[in-house]
Nucleic acid binder design. Structure first.
Lengths: 150, 150
DNA sequence: TATTGTTATACTCTATAACTATA
DNA sequence: TATAGTTATAGAGTATAACAATA
């Protein structure tokens, strides 16, 4: 540790800085979505179903990094709230689509997420924000390809 | 959502990209520290105690964003492993210092963390890495000052 | 009155195993 | 034999409430 700042050894640790910021951002997002009775995972699920109507529950889980076992109660919850339709594809798979109520709530959630991002990242210019998104994504893809647990 | 990429609505969400990368990085860190029987929170605690010997358990918790109630078992665990000394300061506060064994394990953990960061962020130049750390920290400080839950 | 350390507890998120029914 | 959906369950991590001792 001699080659580092002794006062704050965590200052140079990118992983620590990433996690600390992520925790703060996710807490703010949770607050932004709470009035809609949506958790962040549920909101992202609505966004993806809206973008790719008819996709499978397993596809959705793989895209979001959520395991099948944990998808079941999430999907069931949204279904019971009348936010999505489940149509059997072949007896074991079911395709997901938003109902009208689901689409309406999805739009509300999207607006709130956009507000949340605009507010939190107001100090970043549009160019910086876009560059960050690209870099974060590229890094994630590189590591995902390298790591088995991706 | 009409003003966005319909294929991947999450691509432009900085919060989503941040969290996704953070999860991957933390999982890799956990693997790197597992052979030392240390979790990431325990390792960062060792780093901070080494950097600021004599600090209080509450100070440590505040710095790391860990509540008093959750600090107790963490500190007790490190203490029982003979990694740190607890000396009463005034009857309710206790100052923390690493034992020789604690300092040795701290050095091992630091090496592993450095290896982990070098491996994961190999695609970033030293300048980029340092710039990221600064930007992430600045953003965290801005939001922490803005958010009450910081 | 406020703070430190502690215990107990609950809630969320995530991980694994096992089961069914289908392919 | 592998996959989709489900259930049950266990483990982290984190949150609040309450308490004793001390400042």
């Amino acid at each position: 540790m001699a080659d580092d700042n002794m006062r704050d050894p965590l200052a140079t640790l990118l992983g620590y800085q990433l996690r600390r910021l992520s925790v703060l951002v996710m807490a703010d997002l949770a607050e932004a979505l709470a009035p809609l009775d949506l958790r962040s995972a549920e909101a992202t699920m609505l966004f993806l179903i809206a973008a790719q109507p008819g996709l499978t529950q397993s596809d959705l889980g793989r895209t979001l990094g959520i395991q099948r076992a944990n998808m079941a109660p999430l999907i069931a919850g949204l279904d019971q709230r009348g936010l999505l339709d489940r149509a059997k594809l072949d007896g074991r798979s079911q395709s997901l689509r938003l109902t009208d109520a689901g689409a309406a709530l999805c739009r509300q959630a999207w607006e709130r997420v956009q507000d949340h991002e605009a507010r939190l990242f107001a100090d970043l210019s549009p160019g910086e924000r876009s560059r960050w998104a690209t870099q974060l994504r590229d890094l994630w893809e590189t590591l995902g390809a390298r790591e088995p647990a991706g």
